[in-house]
Design a protein around this nucleic acid. Sequence first.
DNA 1: TGCAAAAGTATCGCAAAGCGATACGGTAGT
DNA 2: ACTACCGTATCGCTTTGCGATACTTTTGCA
Lengths: 268, 268
Amino acid sequence: MTDITRPVLPPLPVPAPQDDALFVDSIARGFRVLSAFHGASGPLSLGEIAAQSGLTKSAVQRIVHTLRQQGYLRRDPADRGYLPGLRLLDHALDYQRLNPEIARVLPVLMELRAATGERVDFSLRDDLRLVYALRFQSKRGFYAASLIGTSVPLYCTAGGRAILSRLPEDEARSVIARSPLVPYSSRTLTDPAAIMARVAEAREAGYAIAEEQIVAGEIALGVPVLDEAGHPIGAIHVAGSLAEWDADSFARNFAPLAMTAAGSLNRG
Amino acid sequence: MTDITRPVLPPLPVPAPQDDALFVDSIARGFRVLSAFHGASGPLSLGEIAAQSGLTKSAVQRIVHTLRQQGYLRRDPADRGYLPGLRLLDHALDYQRLNPEIARVLPVLMELRAATGERVDFSLRDDLRLVYALRFQSKRGFYAASLIGTSVPLYCTAGGRAILSRLPEDEARSVIARSPLVPYSSRTLTDPAAIMARVAEAREAGYAIAEEQIVAGEIALGVPVLDEAGHPIGAIHVAGSLAEWDADSFARNFAPLAMTAAGSLNRG
DNA sequence: TGCAAAAGTATCGCAAAGCGATACGGTAGT
DNA sequence: ACTACCGTATCGCTTTGCGATACTTTTGCA
């Protein structure tokens, strides 16, 4: 089984600290502290947090104190450093509950799960990455990576390419240019031209297929989900195992279902 | 299907703003703003956030500005007020990844899911409530309430009673006394003595059974998960439908499996 | 066993940073 | 057209959080 404590994806596309303005609110500092854990694979000490977040140990001390009071941070049970706290889940729940896109997609995704029998999920775009927002597992499988909030890059995922295929050509190129093109598996495409070729195929077909771009043995089919204006905001995935399917049969079986599902969203 | 935008549970046991000290960091203010959404069932305007959080509109304005920059808040796509932002999921993921209890429980829970074929989940105690941290659905069912971060009270859930059964008697009483004893369904027990009686049964049996305490038609079995010191920190649930099971057969089938699972954790 | 390194806690004064009041432009809904 | 109300902007005052320093405790290694 995969180790969930370790970020599955090597360099994890950091979601741009939002460069808009330079001025640093102390609220932002609080989140800098929490964000220090994005790269962590275990409890963090005050010093480590300070190093990661670029803040003084003093500042971190005070902030950690507050965050602990509020339940957003806690000590490691074994008393080695600090860990993210339970209260963070409350906010994640609010996000899921109140997000209109998720509410719209949920029933359709459930139907798709029933129709395909495979793992299906819905993820939302955040600039260069795709963040899993809903996931329904299939009967058995890689539960390990099934956590909400996991994110994957656009350039090497089926859903990501499906999204790129609905962006203006130059914007798609820009996404790829700005992405760190690291190979996650031996078959990950890292050549911009090759990626754009796949994107073009996806534009034509209306869906994208990705074989083992992230995880060995996995095949995924992605279709874009659009907002009212027709801009891609996320993607629906159907994911299966290469032990049971080859690309052609997978697409033949599931592409129509997935596209119907997405279609009902996009004009419904 | 249930409407996920509305908090399923009426008064939602607010997780105690942590009264420890009165001094209010501005970081805490930031979270006050985010927490305003806990009671919301749609986008919130600046004024509504101000009202909910007890802050000035000016303060809220500034805080919201920062939170938006950082991606923790965003405007409603339909341009009516604000909604929680995607970045919140990043932190929820960190919580799940780095939490040692979750890492410990995950494989056991997967096994239990396979062995039972029913919905199983793991939740962590936060004072008076139980917060869902991991959930594996069964083939079909109430996906609606399946979101991570959902919380339920201790006094009327199988897992909650399982936890109470491992607390010192007076502490269990205190939990019940401090809980708002509202009936979620027509069969919810709200009499402290009756609840304690169930807790005593659970202490004896090693597991707790709850029929329709929260959701009509649902039966749940809960076993406590302990830390090294033997204190209950959470619970494992197996949940099924009363259409397929009665309490006795449900317990006969799943109590041994669930207790074995928890047992392997508690002394492993 | 004992020493060194590092972690967590505490204190305190300065100045930066956020708050509150007030005011303005835009958008609905009446 | 008028009236709320929402979001945005501006600007002093002073609250509030930061940084430097220092102390106690725990960890890890010799």
